[in-house]
């Protein structure tokens, strides 16, 4: 059978040229317009509302711990994998660090508590970010991880990768 190489080559070329909807080879520079990291900044003493209805603040939590780790969750499978990793692989090694999950999607204290129970994370404190104050302040999204030290300095503000980035920062405190 005759193979029309010209048409095959054209087809492959069209696939490659028209297909990609994103930059598959981005530069090594962060995207400055969207990289709104607070890493290195001294932050405000933010008020916190928890899923059990209690209130608190950053300063309160840091008064009894060396550092505070916030993980932004929408309770999805990927979030669950990260949260499970934090619970099983990281938290046990850092007894004096306060690990808190931030529910930035449920929209109410009751819903946050419901989904926290259903997801099996009643052993953790969960912030109900009802008015998206933390989400806005830290430019949070799914899997955003924040580490705040005793001096209110943000030591990490990035998305969860392997968990090693959290350990590396906590080890330097």
């Amino acid at each position: 059978m005759f193979i029309n190489v010209k048409y095959i080559a054209l087809l492959i070329m069209v696939l490659f040229i028209t297909g990609c909807q994103e930059d598959l080879m981005p530069s090594n520079d962060p995207i400055e317009s969207t990289l709104l990291s607070r890493e290195g900044e001294v932050i405000d003493d933010l008020a916190l509302t928890f899923s059990d209805g209690t209130s608190g603040s950053i300063s309160e939590r840091l008064s009894t711990h060396d550092a505070l780790v916030l993980y932004f969750t929408m309770w999805c499978p990927i979030c669950d994998a990260h949260m499970s990793h934090i619970r099983n692989q990281i938290q046990p090694q850092y007894n004096n660090v306060d690990f808190i999950f931030v529910d930035y999607v449920s929209g109410s204290i009751v819903e946050t508590m419901n989904v926290q129970r259903a997801s099996g994370y009643t052993d953790f404190d969960v912030i109900a970010d009802i008015n998206n104050e933390l989400e806005t302040y830290f430019n949070g999204t799914m899997a955003t991880t924040i580490i705040i030290d005793k001096n209110f300095i943000v030591k990490l503000n990035s998305l969860f990768k392997t968990g090693n980035e959290i350990k590396d920062k906590l080890d330097t405190l």
Binding site: P30, I31, T34, L35, L36, T141, A143, T144
Partner: peptide
């Protein structure tokens, strides 16, 4: 250099 709409 970005994930879920956020620069990294």
């Amino acid at each position: 250099n970005q994930e879920y709409g956020q620069g990294v």
